[in-house]
């Protein structure tokens, strides 16, 4: 078990899928938990448009239903990130990552501006493409080692994981979390509502940190 990032303090057993808390995963888990609580209690920001060269400014209106929907998506995103942080199963991790991707699309897509809608659609296409290398990578993991459990992989008794499987997994996480596309993400963030859009960034950062641990196993 030396390859895991620290000795698990606690292992929760769900049949074949173990959920384990090492110092590394517990840190990330607490970070996700804290932000989810922030989203739960905070009020959304209200964007102000200032007309250049004059004194005129308008506050963008946010409807209650839109606010509630985006808060729901942000909380779901937080829960998905928490799950992805502590799960001890490769396929389960990919599922949680896919869930992070779709909740991120949901947070953005609820805004009615055509510009934001267009960005959300493009982002959704990338998230959907990313499921292919994600699930494909997990399947190659299973075929080459005969196990999906991270704890088994860390023991070092199974055959080595092929490079392709790891590359697929990382590529999938990049696509779901849009990690290198922060410039494009900034475009999506023209959507108002600060705590919710920050959840998008934080969740993609967290799943990326976790996948680094995952590919170091086996």
């Amino acid at each position: 078990m030396s390859n895991l990032a620290g000795i698990p303090y606690y292992v929760l057993e769900f049949g074949d899928e173990l959920v384990y808390f090492t110092p590394y995963t517990i840190t990330l888990f607490l970070l996700a938990l804290t932000f989810t609580i922030f989203v739960l209690v905070s009020r959304p920001e209200r964007q102000v448009d200032i007309a250049f060269g004059g004194d005129a400014y308008t506050t963008k209106e946010i409807t209650i239903s839109e606010m509630r929907f985006r808060r729901f998506m942000a909380i779901a995103c937080g829960l998905a990130s928490m799950g992805a942080m502590v799960t001890g199963d490769i396929f389960n991790f990919t599922l949680f990552t896919a869930m992070v991707g779709i909740t991120n699309v949901g947070i953005v897509a609820a805004v009615k501006s055509p510009h934001v809608q267009n960005a959300a659609f493009q982002y959704g296409l990338v998230a959907l493409t990313a499921t292919v290398p994600l699930f494909g990578g997990a399947a190659v993991y299973a075929a080459a080692t005969g196990s999906l459990s991270m704890i088994e992989l860390a023991k070092g008794t199974l055959p080595a994981v092929p490079f392709v499987a790891k590359a697929f997994l990382v590529l999938g996480v990049i696509g779901e979390g849009m990690a290198p596309f922060y410039a494009a993400k900034a475009e999506m963030f023209r959507a108002p509502g600060a705590p919710y859009v920050i959840m998008c960034s934080l969740s993609s950062l967290l799943i990326f940190l976790r996948v680094i641990e995952v590919v170091m196993l086996g």
Partner: peptide
């Protein structure tokens, strides 16, 4: 996934398929 060729593969195809269909549903509405 199907190339795994075990009963596990059958159980993994199902979530994979569902996730794809679900995201397509949301994307088509967007």
């Amino acid at each position: 996934i199907a190339l795994l060729g075990t009963d596990l593969a059958e159980a993994l195809v199902l979530p994979g398929l569902t996730v794809g269909i679900a995201e397509q549903l949301a994307l088509s509405q967007i």
